[in-house]
């Protein structure tokens, strides 16, 4: 393909614009962001609770590997470990369905705006990245909230069951890893949920995006 001697310029992706668009979008759609954040918070809270539940067992030592990270005693029988894993996977699927759906709605309601931005010379990547940054922030805040809630519930239940004796047995060594794990899941789900519609919208010819089709 010969591209003649045209004097056509190139637009560069500006990180400050990506950030500004993401922030303004979050700020303006605060109510929606709050609801999305709550969805993420509740589902991640359940996951965090599952992960830290074995704290309630005063004799539970912590082990390495997946089961260890789940806070399971590896000397328990395999069936019990599988049960926990299954429950965790179920929680993950429920979270994924809820968050993906919310993010899908969130982005597809903005096709018109995205089309307009494209008409003004917004790059595909600018649209994609700003939506992703927004989603990741939302996921981080929501999952952060979920971690706090989930941990609080499992600690409260443990204290209620075992009283003060619980504190002398509990080990917090595995906790940072669990917190990071849940935060990553929250961010991953929101980002993935936003990535698909954002990619479609960013690639769409602007006029179709403005009509809000697809």
């Amino acid at each position: 393909m010969e591209k003649a001697e045209w004097q056509i310029g190139e637009l560069r992706l500006r990180a400050d614009l990506v950030w500004a668009l993401a922030m303004s979008s979050l700020k303006v759609r605060m109510g929606r962001a709050f609801i999305t954040g709550l969805t993420i918070a509740t589902t991640t809270a359940f996951m965090m609770y599952l992960l830290t539940m074995p704290y309630a067992d005063p004799n539970a030592p912590f082990h390495d590997g997946v089961a260890g990270m789940m806070g399971l005693r590896t000397d328990r029988d395999a069936g019990e470990v599988q049960g926990f894993l299954l429950m965790f996977v179920m929680a993950l699927l429920v979270a994924a369905a809820g968050v993906l759906n919310t993010m899908l709605m969130n982005v597809s309601q903005r096709y018109r705006e995205i089309g307009t931005i494209k008409c003004l010379g917004g790059l595909d990547r600018l649209i994609l990245f700003s939506v992703l940054v927004e989603a990741a922030l939302l996921g981080l805040v929501g999952a952060g909230l979920g971690v706090i809630i989930g941990l609080a519930i499992s600690l409260l239940l443990s204290v209620a069951d075992y009283g003060g004796a619980f504190w002398s047995h509990v080990g917090f060594g595995g906790l940072p890893l669990k917190v990071i794990f849940v935060l990553l899941i929250g961010m991953g789900l929101t980002t993935l949920g936003a990535a698909i519609p954002a990619q479609i919208a960013a690639k769409m010819p602007p006029i179709e995006a403005m009509r809000g089709e697809k």
């Binding site: 056509i8 310029g9 190139e10 008409c119 003004l120 010379g121 790059l123 602007p206």
Partner: peptide, 10 residues
């Protein structure tokens, strides 16, 4: 895509 964006922009 980038050149089109430039065209629409400038």
């Amino acid at each position: 895509a980038n050149e089109l964006a430039w065209l629409r922009c400038r």
